[in-house]
Computed example of a mutant assay.
Amino acid sequence: MRRGAEAPTLIASAQRALRLLEAAARHPSGATAKQLARDTGLALGTTYHLLRTLVHDRYLERREGRYLTGPAVSGLRGDDGPDGRAAGRNRLDGLLGRMSHELKAAVHFSRYKDGEVELVAARAAPGTTTADPERFRAGAHAHASGKTLLAMMSAEERRAHLERHPMVPFTPYTLREPAHLPLLPGPGPQRAAPITQYQEYELGLVGAAVPIVMGSDLAAIAVALPVSQAHRLTAVAGKLRTRVGEDLVTAAFGL
């Protein structure tokens, strides 16, 4: 320290809270209070006190006994420029990771942009594979996300899309006629029942998707399960609907 310089005044409680935030950020699927206490070297009682404050102020979220970074953390960085987009992508990846962990299913987010169905982010799960973006784009009529996006398009948009990407069969169960594709009633498509697919896109795979709308922007979030777990699909899709909140919409359309 330089002669005559005073030692900086440090707030120990603030330092401890920041250490907890850093530790929580290293666990995309969440961590228990005991895990965070071990990671930071803090006493368990102190950890609980700080966690309650951080949850109250939305820097952390508590779900099923695990703590995850909350929406206030994302708000610390602007949304403009490359850094903002990277932060938004990290936030979306984190949300999908948490959903995949909670639902025990693959989760992927897609959107309709510039006339194409685009796979934006995905998180695989045991018994599933990560979708190929090109196959995903061409097979919108076969997977749950694409069927949901097609269901929200105008008749003209849907017709133009199917002209570019004909309804070719991916499996024996793939729909072949536009008239057989589902349609979502408006307004309020987010209240509609999830749209499903049973081995239409890939043999051995079932899925369900729910729509996400912000203004004129269309997106969908979907779950996928191995066909051996098809009996779980209705329940998992129902839980997925409850996860579609402001945080997901903000992260998704901020990219």
Rank of each mutant, 00 (worst) to 15 (best):
V117M: 07
V236A: 08
A144Y: 03
G81S: 12
I212Q: 04
S145K: 01
A230L: 05
I11Q: 13
L21S: 06
G238W: 08
L95S: 07
A12M: 10
L68N: 00
A220S: 15
I11S: 08
M1V: 12
R3I: 13
V120H: 07
L103M: 10
A12K: 12
T234C: 03
E22N: 00
Y201W: 08
D217P: 00
A105D: 07
V117T: 06
S74T: 03
H56F: 11
T250I: 03
R137D: 02
L255I: 05
A142Q: 00
H165F: 15
K104R: 15
A220L: 11
P178W: 01
R111M: 15
A125V: 02
L119M: 10
Q197F: 09
E156R: 15
T53V: 14
H141D: 01
R241P: 02
G188W: 06
M152I: 08
Y112M: 09
A43G: 13
V73F: 14
V55D: 05
A87W: 04
Q229F: 11
F136V: 09
H161N: 07
L203F: 00
T69Y: 03
A124N: 09
E6R: 14
R241G: 11
L203N: 06
A192S: 15
L149T: 01
L76V: 12
S29Y: 01
A179E: 04
R191A: 14
R3D: 14
G204L: 07
P169H: 11
L184D: 08
L181W: 00
Q197M: 13
R3L: 15
P126L: 15
A122P: 01
I221G: 08
T53I: 10
G139C: 05
